[in-house]
Design a protein around this nucleic acid. Structure first.
Ligand code: DGT
Ligand code: MG
Ligand code: MG
Ligand code: ZN
Length: 573
DNA sequence: GCCGTTTTCGGCCCGACTGTTTTCAGTCG
């Protein structure tokens, strides 16, 4: 699959950036951005859809023109419009718009007035005091640009959800203690439980926003106050994380939660629905003319635009509004539905706790089972087990199980998928296990087709129950290895294999969209923590949240079954 | 550039903060 959706989307976003610098019609700019989002959200590759002759203009926000441009990109690898725009607009202007407070208009003005060629030119101009000479710019803007560029890195940094929690929980507790704050909640992508967050968005209810914000910016961890008004403020924490605080009267709480939870696309869709009903929706309420008809609760806001309340995890404008309208919202899986964990390590390989300790921790969580999945022999750096050691572990598990009531350890392993798709233990040994998790831990750069073939070949072995962390990505550290997810899912479906949703907040592999595609094709998902210590079992909630973002219900998830049912489900042909 | 059971043309979400502004455009959420 030569051109990926993410690349097509990036090209459309780039077109939008360049058009914006040229002061093109802003709705045309928005059309490219909307199309980019649509493409990014598709589980199927555009390239494959073009190949099949699908009508791309059926996709939301893709019309005949953009369908043609997608086809052009798929066929040629290029977009003529983008090539032309790139000749006319220096890339450095687009780069400059990444400086907070500098948008397309001001970036272009600076580059043209001062005849700049690069970001480094801009930095020098700021240092030499030439920016303040440009009409419409002053000392403050100049100082801000100088500071931002001196700090070096202007690329947007995103934080893992678990990292964000460490900052968010004490901060929202602080906000709740501020005089005059009636209540406060974290909204934004954090409330939607996105795998990474760009910032923290905190909503507070109170009458005197100015006073509340004065206290907010005094928070110990605040490094810089970016902006500060009567209803909203932005600060940067020492860790580099931005925090937006929004303060509204309690009567607007629901509308403001709706607004601040987003996503932006979900908000815009909701506001358009309001328009269609001759109403107006903003963060203060839903209005019929001057009259507020709702706003205190989210339920009231949704009701006013003819919808049931929608779970925050679904608010991405990926069909949830249409589903809500038809009363077809999914019955999302809940943490309580989880009956056990199917991926965990012990001191036998690279874990930090014993079989018994892991078992006790699992029982404490109310589980009926825990699969012990230590590494296989090729994983020498991760303490991979020899065949003998695994045999011994199987016996040890059997012995321990005799002492448990209403709980059992499952004898398993996380067996390496070797380069040719063979497994790292002999079939005879694998046959003794309750289930087998097979994972790729080496040769990430085989190329998409070979990598996909490799994993499918592993699934050809009927011993394989689950494919572990199917893309190998590490959030913020390592990209997924190239793999054809649609083909992988189809193959898993044909073979009765389960795909793992690795719940470690460092992985969350599969993604929300991939989970959704899998269950749409009838493939079950195992939400597994890959715990390397007893504490790791608690990562389950991240996996459940990710599953919810993928529209999964309990029925779609293998480890919502009791072991007796799960055992039957895992049995292959 | 997209879209439409009241439209195939004329709309396109709506509001806060900033800086340099003499009345608001730009940027951002
Ligand atoms: N109506 C409307 N709401 C917006 C717009 N931009 C942002 N919002 C709302 C929805 C967002 O979820 C919320 C917080 O904005 P953020 O920029 O922090 O986005 P979000 O938290 O969704 O993602 P993030 O992980 O921070 O990048 O504000 C907009 O242009 N219009
Ligand atoms: Mg945010
Ligand atoms: Mg924000
Ligand atoms: Zn692994």
């Amino acid at each position: 699959m030569p051109v990926h959706n993410s690349e097509i989307a990036a090209m459309f976003d780039h077109v939008a950036d360049l058009l914006e610098v040229q002061s093109a019609n802003r709705f045309r700019v928005r059309a490219y951005r909307n199309a980019a989002n649509t493409i990014r959200d598709q589980s199927r590759p555009m390239a494959r859809m073009v190949e099949e002759g699908a009508d791309l203009s059926q996709l939301p926000d893709i019309g005949d023109d953009l369908a043609g441009k997608i086809t052009e990109i798929v066929r040629t690898g290029h977009l003529e419009l983008l090539d032309e725009l790139s000749e006319d607009v220096p890339e450095a202007i687009v780069e400059a718009t990444r400086i907070p407070g500098v948008g397309p208009k001001r970036a272009r003005a600076l580059f043209e007035e001062l005849d700049l060629k690069s970001l480094d030119d801009l930095r020098q101009a700021a240092e030499q005091g030439r920016i303040a000479d440009v009409k419409g710019f002053g000392e403050r803007t100049q100082a801000k640009i100088r500071e931002e560029l001196a700090e070096g890195d202007i690329t947007e940094r995103r934080f893992r959800l678990d990292t964000a929690e460490d900052f968010a929980e004490p901060l929202v507790a602080y906000v709740r203690r501020i005089d005059g704050v009636q209540k406060a909640e974290i909204a934004g992508s954090y409330r939607r439980r996105k795998e990474t967050v760009g910032d923290l968005d905190i909503l507070a209810a109170g009458e005197d926003g100015g006073a509340i914000i004065d206290r907010f910016v005094e928070y110990d961890e605040v490094d810089k106050v970016v902006s500060k008004g009567k209803t909203r403020s932005t600060v940067t924490l020492r860790a580099g994380l931005n925090v937006d605080l929004r303060v509204v009267p309690e009567a607007s709480w629901g509308a403001a939660m709706h607004y601040f939870t987003g996503s932006k696309a979900h908000n815009v869709a909701g506001r358009r629905r309001a328009q269609d009903r001759s109403l107006k929706l903003n963060e203060y309420g839903l209005y019929d003319g001057e009259t507020r008809i709702s706003g205190a609760t989210e339920e009231g806001v949704y009701e006013g635009i003819g919808l049931p309340w929608i779970e925050p995890v679904l608010r991405e404008n990926r069909g949830e509004i249409e589903a809500a309208e038809k009363g077809e919202l999914p019955d999302l899986i809940k943490p309580d539905d989880i009956r056990g964990d199917l991926h965990a390590h012990t001191t036998a390989s690279d874990g930090r706790n014993s079989l018994l300790e892991m078992a006790e921790a699992a029982m404490e969580r109310g589980y009926g089972y825990l699969a012990i999945t230590d590494h296989s022999r090729s994983q020498t750096q991760a303490g991979g087990l020899s065949a003998d050691k695994l045999e011994a572990q199987i016996d040890e598990i059997a012995e321990l199980n005799e002492g448990f009531e209403g709980f059992r350890l499952l004898a398993s392993c996380e067996v390496d998928i070797l380069e040719n798709g063979d497994l790292d233990f002999p079939d005879k040994l694998l046959a003794r296990l309750d289930l087998v998790v097979a994972s790729v831990h080496s040769k990430f750069n085989l190329g998409e087709e070979a990598q996909t073939d490799r994993i499918i070949r592993a699934m050809d072995n009927p011993a394989v129950s689950i494919i572990g962390h199917p893309t190998g990505r590490l959030l913020g550290q390592r990209r997924a290895y190239p793999v054809d997810m649609e083909r992988l899912i189809e193959a898993a479906g044909e073979r009765g294999c389960v795909l793992e949703l690795n719940a470690n907040p460092n992985r969350l592999d599969l993604s929300d969209i991939q989970c959704r595609m899998a269950v749409e094709r009838g493939v079950k998902i195992a939400i597994s923590t890959d715990a390397h210590a007893t504490g790791g079992l608690a990562h389950m909630r991240y996996g459940v949240d990710q599953a919810r973002r993928g529209w999964l219900s309990a029925d779609d998830v293998a480890n919502t079954l009791d072991w007796s049912d799960l055992e039957k489900m895992l049995k292959r042909g």
